[in-house]
Design a protein around this nucleic acid. Structure first.
Length: 785
RNA sequence: GCCCGAGUGGCGGAAUUGGUAUACGCGUUCGACUUAAAAUCGAAUGGGAAACCAUAUGGGUUCAAGUCCCAUCUCGGGCACCA
């Protein structure tokens, strides 16, 4: 007996796809293009997890859906390979990050192929490949040339465990996003990208994007624009400039507060207060972010200095307190305890005056100023396994860019991957590599000579590598350009981008780089991603996060190899719930999806067997199929209506990314076909609609049915039934359903006549009907008694 | 604390502009097939004997409310001294 054996079918089709590579994307002018991508994975040693499968399957369903509609589709694939896990593994085992990465990529590729994704494998990229990071360095140099990559000495987040600085976006609740260790503040000279240059545009254009509101709100909050004013307060011969959003409250400003890290603090502090202020500053710097958050009790000390309020001309004291943040505004505020809750709390604690003053004109004493919460993006990392920053220093310590023709700056081979104790990465251990000859032009004579310099030993934040990879997909092997201008013009921006993480960091950085490279004339668009699908996580059956330590991890490859196959896994993960919500894995529901695919297969085989239906018991298909077969071809029971209804439902559901209800509609269709019998046309349509979810089974069905996979169209004429059901309510309650001819259903008088004559209705309307509301659109009649 | 989002059967979840609540799947029960089990197929499945009552709770608007309005409770997410 022919039965559904997913592992056999899937092996057959995967072999065929491997040999034929049918998903190559080729530019075809005049043909509408559709480019789709997932947030490329970090290939860990553990292999694919169920979350990857959800992510990649969403992209695959859409890819196949558009491909079947004969759009010119590109669905590339790549690996985000720099980062701490590979480096820490190297420190522990001595296996080089390069070798470990190669092994992990091979495993990921194999597993992705086992899931049957419609990937153009010729467009595979890897951020730690020198052919790739050469261009990451090129991007850095473009930003450097325009002053958007710069060095600054300031207090930075430092992770003592990973021995590296971190960007603001990589500190979560005062802890390192990678290892969870508490972070500290450390004063260091570091490289930054000037993302704040684009703060306004990043904010203003976000609402025009087809992105989930949640992400747009998070980005807006992160950028955090506030309009206010800067006001100068004289302090002896010096001055303190404060930022305020309420310059109109200046008459109530009874003291100033500066942050502990405030740059001019040591110059204004009086001698008798100096010890107390310096001690307070030292304590504040030592405090971890966690401690600062836990203790919101106001603390602070008087500096001994007084400022002149420019509005009242009164002398007001200057305090230092850690509730004022060094990095925001000017690091100094005018405290108006009558209007600001925090200032009031501080004033009450330290017995400072609170004055309920009148408001003044906003522009009277200050200059208008817009401030952002977002800071510039700190990109230096004191780690080995990253993209080297293409910079060298002369003997005076001045930075010089590595000339573009010397790229890539290769990562040197070392024996020990540990950072050295001086706060430098392991790159510092490659003594020969450190020395480099850089051409220097004398500004006076215009002559160029070579000068020996020392290379930068910091590497770039991995987010830099992922800030441009979507463009590399357009021309992944180009040796002349980071992205080929013609290819980028055809394929991009990305039409659909799918992911579950990086709401602010990555998704803000790609927008920033896009705007910069558009300004430089390298990109013909200013937003890189048209539509973003942000899907939920898949949790363990107990609803908790899957984790190795809890032992509740579901391995997708186990699900496949248990006999369910990739089609069941894929379809299940689309059926699991609304795409944007988290879902809990349910092993029994996986079985339900398997049964559904099995029913699809049996429907086909029983229809394809010529002659009388198989009789008697059989392993998978028996009586009901026979009955369905017996009903087939009986003209009264044609399936045109349900077929067209299903085409419409599945098509519109996929457009709306309602994958769970699309699968439900297919299940409903199969259930119907089991009852009334399937025509060949029904089976072909079923296979076509099923293909995005279960491509192996669907391909097998289409082959046996000798049909192509072109997406079917529905015809509205089949959706208009000859008879319709009219709902009759009495006082809003369902009392009867009338099955009447479609022509009569639009006729109010006719419907009423039939309803009044219906015995189920008569008993409710014996005392007369006050009002009758007929809604043809809803096919509903409501009688008010 | 502030800003969003969500509360629907035993469970995951469906329900155009307000218009038949509970699609689909799981689970459960019964039946067919089988020596038996599994698998498969079929039937039933919100509660209640019924009238009726049910979409977190209490009000409101409406001929009609899961959907709109007000209040309350619970859960989830984001931000968190941003002046």
């Amino acid at each position: 007996m022919d039965r559904y054996e997913p592992l056999k079918i899937e092996a057959k089709w995967q072999e065929k796809w491997e040999a034929e590579q049918p998903y190559r994307a080729i530019e075809k002018s005049g043909m509408p293009k559709m480019m789709l991508a997932e947030m490329f994975p970090y290939p860990s040693g553990a292999g694919l997890h169920v979350g990857h499968v959800r992510n990649f399957t969403i992209v695959d369903v859409l890819t196949r859906f558009y491909e079947q509609q004969r759009m010119n589709v590109m669905r590339p694939f790549g690996y985000d390979t720099f980062g701490l896990p590979a480096e820490n593994y190297a420190i522990k085992t001595g296996v080089s990050p390069k070798a470990a990465t190669a092994t992990n990529i091979a495993n990921f590729r194999k597993q992705a192929k086992r899931l049957g994704f419609a990937i153009d494998w010729s467009r595979e990229i890897n951020t730690s490949d020198p052919e790739y990071y050469k261009w990451t360095q090129w991007c850095f140099l473009q930003l450097y040339k325009k002053g958007l990559a710069y060095q600054k000495e300031s207090y930075q987040w430092w992770c003592p465990e990973d021995q590296t600085v971190l960007a603001n976006e990589q500190v979560e609740n005062g802890k390192c996003w990678r290892c969870g260790h508490e972070v500290e503040k450390k004063k260091m000279k570091q490289w930054f990208f000037k993302i704040t240059e684009y703060a306004d545009e990043l904010l203003d254009e976000i609402d025009a994007l087809d992105w989930p509101e949640k992400i747009r709100t998070m980005q807006k909050n992160w950028i955090g624009r506030s309009a206010g004013a800067e006001i100068e307060f004289a302090v002896g011969s010096r001055k303190i400039t404060v930022f305020t959003t309420r310059p109109d409250t200046i008459l109530g400003a009874t003291f100033l507060v500066v942050a502990p890290e405030y740059a001019g603090l040591e110059y204004i502090v009086s001698d008798d207060c100096r010890d107390a202020v310096m001690k307070y500053k030292a304590d504040a710097l030592k405090k971890s972010e966690i401690e600062r958050q836990e203790n919101k009790e106001k603390t602070g000390v008087f500096t001994g200095a007084y400022a002149i309020n420019p509005a009242t001309k009164e002398k007001i004291p200057v305090w230092v307190a850690d509730y004022v943040l060094a990095g925001y505004g000017t690091g100094a505020i005018m405290a108006v305890p009558a209007y600001d809750e925090r200032d009031r709390e501080f004033a009450e604690k330290f017995d400072l005056p609170i004055v309920e003053a009148e408001l003044v004109d906003r522009d009277l004493y200050g200059t208008p100023k817009v401030t952002y919460k977002m800071r510039d993006w700190l990109i230096s990392r004191q780690r080995y396994w990253g993209c080297p920053i293409p910079i060298a220093y002369d003997k005076d310590g001045n930075p010089h860019p590595i000339p573009e023709d010397q790229l890539p700056v290769m990562i040197p081979e070392v024996d020990d991957y540990r950072p050295d104790n001086s706060g430098r990465s392991a790159l510092a251990k490659a003594k020969d590599w450190l020395k480099v000859e850089i051409p220097v032009t004398d500004p006076k004579t215009g002559e160029t000579h070579m000068e020996e310099m020392t290379r930068e030993t910091d590497t770039l934040d991995g987010y830099a590598c992922s800030s441009w990879y979507l463009w590399r997909y357009a021309s992944p092997h180009d040796t002349e350009y980071a992205w080929n201008p013609e290819a980028i013009k055809y394929w991009e921006p990305v039409d659909v981008y799918v992911g579950a993480d990086h709401a602010v960091a990555h998704l803000l950085y790609v927008r920033f780089w896009c705007k910069f490279f558009a300004d430089e004339g390298f990109l013909p668009f200013r937003e890189p991603i048209k539509k973003l699908i942000y899907h939920g996580y898949i949790n363990a059956p107990d609803g908790k996060k899957m984790s190795k330590s809890k032992g509740n991890v579901i391995d997708p490859l186990d699900v496949i190899n248990d006999g369910y196959g990739a089609d069941t896994l894929r379809t299940y993960e689309m059926f699991i719930g609304p795409v944007e919500l988290d879902a809990a894995w349910d092993p029994r529901s996986v079985g339900g999806v398997y049964r559904f695919l099995n029913r699809c297969y049996n429907l086909m085989t029983s229809a394809l067997v010529p002659g009388p239906r198989p009789s008697g018991p059989s392993p998978r298909a028996d009586g009901a199929i026979s009955r369905a077969a017996a009903l087939r071809n009986t003209p009264e029971l044609n399936t045109d209506i349900i077929r067209h209804k299903t085409i419409k439902k599945v098509t519109t559901d996929i457009h709306k990314c309602n994958f769970n209800t699309a699968v439900a509609a297919l299940m409903e269709y199969v259930n119907e076909l089991y009852k009334v019998g399937a025509t060949t046309e029904d089976l072909v349509v079923l296979a076509k609609l099923l293909k995005p979810f279960a491509p192996h089974l669907a391909s097998e069905m289409l082959e046996r049915l000798e049909a192509d996979d072109e997406w079917p169209k529905w015809d509205e004429k089949y959706l208009v039934a000859e008879n319709v059901e009219i709902v009759v309510q009495v006082n809003g309650k369902l009392r009867a359903k009338l099955n009447i001819a479609a022509d009569d259903a639009a006729d109010e008088e006719k419907v009423k006549e039939l309803a009044f004559a219906d015995e189920r209705i008569q008993k409710y309307i014996a005392d007369g009907v006050k009002k009758a509301i007929f809604v043809p659109r809803a096919k509903l009649l409501n009688l008010v008694v």
